[in-house]
């Protein structure tokens, strides 16, 4: 493709800064706070190995004597101080949260990516082709929508465990989780993309491409896809929050990632056992992190939806 990008135009950053969406962002305090919180947690998760004061997964570094240390207080045996306290095995809660968020976010992002790729592909085909393919895909989607997403994920998780040999279960658990959550979320993308593709395909720029005989696959990818990405980004953002919560729920129910590699949901499951014996911090801090993460990502999605909707501007 010939490049028609002119050289004398303002650079990409200046143009992005001046765009309507950036303007809307700068004028929405809620969006700024939500973005800041999300980015902080994401960055903390990515850099967990460098930021975390302890490595919670290295049994050698753990001291059982450190167990049940309350936050900001010296341990009664060892005198060690932990910001957010320790759990029953003496793991630093702050470090487990960083590593836990890492796994939660990894599962969330991958599940969204999987659901997005699947949903966009099927949605584009259904919307552009129409006819029986469309009917078939949408009926499957309808049926799937009648099951709660968590129930479906549980089902997929259960089926997958039946196929995977026990020795590989722990290693595969995270991928099974991603597929399970992704499969339960693809319908949202497919429906929106299908609707948008049906609108776009009747537009005259698509007809102009069809008149000269451009291949349908190329029309879908080069013409229609870029024009349906707006709503997809909105769902993906809100979907990320949903996926993180779904992962936490599954892990809380004990069907998620193994406890040797705890996600935020696993941490909450472990923590709730100690709530009534007085060690509240083991439950509270992972829960707050999950809440902050899901809420801020969700708020960001809400803002994005409003900012991309020209009627609300």
């Amino acid at each position: 493709m010939t490049d028609f990008t002119p050289e004398d135009r303002p650079n990409a950053f200046a143009r992005a800064w001046d765009s309507d969406i950036a303007w809307s962002f700068r004028h929405s305090p809620l969006a700024i706070v939500a973005a800041a919180v999300s980015l902080l947690i994401i960055a903390a998760a990515i850099f967990a190995p460098w930021l975390a004061p302890h490595d919670p997964f290295n049994p050698a570094s753990l001291n059982l004597m450190d167990g049940f240390t309350p936050p900001m207080q010296p341990n009664q045996f060892t005198g060690n101080v932990y910001w957010l306290g320790t759990d029953n095995q003496g793991r630093d809660v702050f470090s487990t949260i960083l590593y836990g968020a890492r796994i939660s976010l990894f599962v969330g992002f991958m599940a969204v990516l999987f659901a997005m790729v699947l949903g966009i592909t099927l949605g584009l085909i259904a919307g552009y082709r129409g006819g029986w393919i469309d009917s078939l895909l949408m009926r499957i989607a309808d049926v799937q929508l009648t099951f709660p997403a968590i129930l479906l994920a549980l089902l997929i998780f259960g089926v997958a465990r039946g196929f995977i040999p026990p020795s590989m279960r722990d290693a595969m658990a995270i991928w099974v989780l991603i597929v399970a959550i992704g499969l339960s979320e693809w319908v949202n993308y497919a429906r929106v993309v299908r609707g948008a593709a049906m609108v776009e395909k009747s537009k005259e720029y698509v007809q102009a491409a069809r008149v000269i005989g451009v291949h349908p696959a190329r029309i879908l990818i080069r013409h229609i896809l870029p024009n349906v990405m707006g709503p997809v980004l909105v769902i993906a953002t809100i979907g990320l929050a949903l996926a993180i919560i779904a992962e936490a729920t599954l892990s809380f129910l004990g069907v998620g990632v193994p406890s040797t590699q705890p996600s935020l949901g696993t941490l909450i499951r472990i923590g709730q056992g100690f709530l009534f014996s007085g060690e509240w911090w083991i439950l509270l801090f992972p829960s707050l992190t999950l809440l902050a993460l899901a809420l801020s990502v969700n708020l960001l999605g809400d803002w994005l939806r409003d900012a991309l909707n020209p009627r609300l501007r």
Partner: peptide, 19 residues
């Protein structure tokens, strides 16, 4: 509606040439 809003004018005009 007849021009793809995400394409540069040059690419729009060149599409038949490329095709």
């Amino acid at each position: 509606a007849s021009l793809n809003p995400r394409w540069r004018v040059g690419d729009i005009i060149a599409e038949p040439i490329h095709t």
